[in-house]
Design a binder for these strands. Structure first.
Length: 586
RNA sequence: GCCCCAGUAGUUCAAUGGAUAGAACAAGGGUUUCCUAAACCUUAGAUGGAGGUUCGAUUCCUCCCUGGGGCACCA
């Protein structure tokens, strides 16, 4: 058990001993102290309980302190009635030893493991991934790793857009003239060219637009030629997408795209009709919010033509075709029935919020009440002008280009600062720093906020960046390269003893690791783990400056070596949970 | 018009209802015979506005202002 949990337990016992009524034990907290001058941990218990007990908070705090077993810490009372705990060096020493021996470095697995399907990335086939896919892809991968580490069963599903309108356009342009050579060398670019070609023409020419629509209809009705083109598109696209996923270190358990649900759509829609959930309106089959299941804040009402009416979820268009709402419902069914999902997390752009509100509402009305459906939404990536990031041509920048630019920027910095010897090693380091800086920057921001994409800042030497974390790891490990193997083998954590303030502080920071990982899933917030790692790294650098390791001797040397080792392991482990690999040297 | 999200130092971002709102960058001042100075130490600087709930509000509630987004067959 970690220190705050132990303190809380002792506190509850003390409260009972002091004869204090506790209406809501869950609200009694022991948290890290806001300011170290007060101690290491603090509790608000006395302030919370004083009013119902009709006592003065400070007097109550004093009673509790008198009743509390204090082998771990010194206690004091301050301010309006905070109880402060100052952990003894001996207790910190024990905690470092225990954390170093713990297989998960202080992370506690959840008692109730759940099956969690994570729906993320989901690019469209036949189009390269662009900057807009960064957030979903990187956040989804990170949440998957953390849920897995905490003991959940995680199923990562790439719900690719392989059946949408764009296929009509790609097929139309393909028939007009596909460049087989280009298809071999760079399939995604050639498919993009075809798509843009058709898309541009169909905007100007209604006839082209209609022909594209017909190509899509033909595909959906099973036309052999169009099916063959589609098969090749999907195959080539997956190959191209996998190159980027490899580079990003992202993996999936399934690629259940929209097309995987084709056969289930017609029966699903019939069922919805029979059960009275869907009805026809303006030629389309729609689900409206029901009186039995009114939406929370009435988001389903819109004002149109002077009349109030429900905003529908269209599951069959007036031309008879199904759309993404239909497949999304079928996808929920599949994930619940086939995969026994307890939770489904959709890591998708905030602009689709109302779609998911509708989808979740419909799923519940269909009887899927056990599954927890969550829209993990996120904001927009902006350019330096504060507007959504675009290329000079006005398109969304392609993800591969963005990564290349990041690597180039990193290569410049590496060229100036690196201690590595060969150009080849420097190139590899630049790739690692470039790609991972983009990932870290994404994860370090609150997911709901829009953030400005600034490559130079991401790979910069200074600041809250991935390279700063890498440097702290590399610095900690470099010590061990200077040691004789014999000393490393002889290292014995049982003999350490923390004394210096900087040693105590790094121990204090290390103790927070488990909680820092756990809180990420409270609200799907990887940025909390990022902040923690940066703070840990800062503490480590301070410690490293203040406490020479190799010049020290005996127990002190042993202690500092153990702290370097544990810190580097926690940084490496934490970054791994973010989906980021560390360099051994830089 | 209705709904959703966001407004915090000059800038980019933080902050499970807690004490004096934290960092980073930029600005000022220091540190290297010493384990990677990609570092450390140090100075100055902020909660859009008005109410409310609370012992206590950046956080919860109401209204207003500003910005972004969604609102019938695209995904």
């Amino acid at each position: 058990m970690n220190i705050p949990a132990l303190l809380r337990e002792k506190l509850l016992i003390a409260l009972e001993t002091a004869g204090v009524e506790i209406p809501d034990p869950a609200r009694i907290q022991v948290s890290a102290a806001a300011d170290l001058q007060f101690g290491d941990y603090q509790s608000n218990a006395a302030m919370m309980l004083a009013k119902p007990a009709k006592k003065n908070p400070r007097e109550l705090a004093q009673q509790v302190v008198d009743a509390m077993d204090s082998d771990l810490c010194e206690m004091s009372i301050a301010g309006p009635g905070f109880i402060n705990f100052k952990i003894t060096p001996a207790a910190w020493t024990q905690n470092v030893i225990a954390q170093g021996n713990a297989p998960l470095l202080g992370i506690h697995q959840v008692p109730d493991s759940q099956t969690i399907v994570i729906d993320f990335s989901a690019p469209n086939v036949a189009k390269p991934m662009h900057i807009g896919h960064i957030r979903s892809t990187i956040i989804g991968e990170c949440l998957g790793r953390i849920a897995d580490r905490l003991g959940h069963q995680v199923i990562k599903d790439n719900h690719i857009g392989d059946w949408g309108t764009q296929f009509g356009m790609v097929t139309w342009a393909w028939k007009k003239g596909v460049d087989e050579g280009a298809l071999e060398t760079d399939p995604l670019q050639e498919l993009l060219r075809l798509y843009r070609n058709a898309s541009d023409l169909s905007k100007e020419d209604d006839k082209v637009r209609e022909e594209c629509r017909q190509e899509l209809v033909a595909l959906q009705q099973g036309d052999a030629e169009n099916k063959a083109i589609w098969d090749r598109c999907v195959e080539l696209s997956k190959k191209g997408l996998n190159q980027i996923y490899d580079r990003l270190g992202v993996t999936f358990d399934h690629w259940m795209g929209e097309s995987a649900y084709n056969d289930q759509l017609a029966p699903l829609v019939s069922r919805l009709e029979q059960e009275g959930l869907a009805r026809e309106s303006e030629g389309a089959l729609c689900l409206f919010s029901s009186e039995e299941n009114p939406p929370k804040k009435d988001p389903f009402k819109i004002h149109r033509d002077g009349e109030w009416q429900d905003q529908p979820m269209i599951v069959r268009k007036n031309d008879g075709a199904f759309n993404y709402a239909t497949t999304d419902i079928a996808t929920v069914e599949h994930r619940v029935q086939e995969w026994q999902a307890d939770q489904i997390w959709y890591v998708v752009d905030f602009r689709q919020g109302s779609h998911f509100e509708q989808l979740f509402d419909v799923a519940h009305r269909m009887g899927y009440n056990q599954v927890d459906l969550v829209h993990v939404s996120f904001g927009t990536i902006l350019g330096k002008d504060g507007k959504p990031l675009k290329t000079r041509a006005g398109d969304l920048p392609q993800l591969a280009d963005v990564l290349d630019d990041a690597v180039k920027a990193a290569r410049l910095v590496v060229g100036e600062k690196s201690h590595l010897d060969t150009e080849e090693e420097k190139d590899q380091l630049a790739e690692l720093i470039g790609v991972n800086s983009v990932k870290f920057t994404e994860l370090a921001h609150h997911r709901m906020s829009d953030y400005v994409f600034d490559l130079d800042k991401m790979v910069a030497l200074e600041g809250d960046t991935a390279p700063y974390l890498f440097y702290s790891y590399v610095r900690a490990r470099s010590i061990f390269r200077k040691l004789e193997q014999e000393e490393i083998d002889r290292l014995n954590a049982e003999q350490i003893q923390l004394t210096e303030p900087a040693e105590i502080h790094i121990a204090r920071m290390l103790a927070r690791y488990g909680d820092s990982v756990r809180v990420v899933l409270d609200d799907y917030r990887p940025n909390l783990l990022c902040s923690y790692l940066l703070e840990l790294a800062r503490s480590f650098h301070s410690f490293f400056e203040a406490c020479p390791v190799l010049k020290s001797e005996g127990v002190q040397r042993e202690t500092r070596l153990i702290l370097c080792d544990l810190t580097s392991r926690v940084i490496q482990d934490g970054l791994n949970l973010l989906g980021i690999d560390v360099p051994e040297r830089m």
